[in-house]
Amino acid sequence: MVVKFFSNSWYCVGDSVQGASHKRNKINRQDEIGIPRAYADFPLVVSVADGHGGKDYFRSDKGAKIAVDTATEVCQQFFSAIHIQKYNPENNKDYRESLRREIVRVWRERVFEHINVLQPYDDEELERVCQKQKSNRTTAAIKNRPETPSNDPVLIPYGSTLLSVVITEYCIAYLQIGDGDIYCINRDGKISRPISKDPNLIGNETTSLCSVEAWSDLEIKIVPIDEQSPPPMMIMLSSDGYANSYPDDTAFQKVVCDYFKKIYSYKDGVIDGITDIGQNLPHWLDEASEGGSGDDISLVLVGNVDYLK
């Protein structure tokens, strides 16, 4: 469980639990979360990553950890470099394009480093990797985009999703590749998804950082912050194990709203609400996995309390 406060305005709370079915089958947790240190400066980067698991993705727990670390480092550097004085919303398209390529490039570089330096594949693992067939999207994708890093099958065992939110003084960026959910509670009290759900992904299908065209599957939305468009009151990131523990989107949106209500229901202040959530979160997430999907569940809540002032 992690509870962090970054300034008078922003807080964060999150946790990641091993799924009930993973406990039964003695499978390590494949999810990971990334949260900045307390009182960190902008840009603040929070992330949730969900390693795919299963025999084809036998290092996906490592892939998820590399994903959240990559997102933190790349996004911090990227948005620090833009800086408030240089930020121009008209350039959002260019920012998105550069950021998605950089995240995928660095993730792949670090996976290669992990394989080559920290934990080389043993003979049995290598054989499993070599059994991989070529993807039917490979050839054209590589030909058309030679700058795209290779679809080397050695990457596949590290397959992971990534959800990140970057908060600066001047904008908020939402990033998502693969399944999982990002929800906002906006200033008008309405709930929204900053990045639309991919209608092509149902059941256990996902896009992935290990995919050939990961850079194009990585959705990014950058929303400027100003007086007319203040930041959301709360943003929630979660791995798909959480939403899959409820019957439908409507039922899961109630979860989002309930967290928001809990934070603001304490008469002595939101700090008590946030701390209470932090203390209970491991139990709540365990309970959801046991009674729901059985999958690992990760959750990060990040919120802004400026509007209370």
């Binding site: 079915s21 969900d50 299963g54 993705y57 995919s211």
Partner: peptide
């Protein structure tokens, strides 16, 4: 007990 499948997983395959 299915695990996630990437959309461009090697084909042909079962889900």
């Amino acid at each position: 007990q299915p695990m996630s499948q990437t959309r461009d997983a090697p084909k042909p395959t079962t889900n």
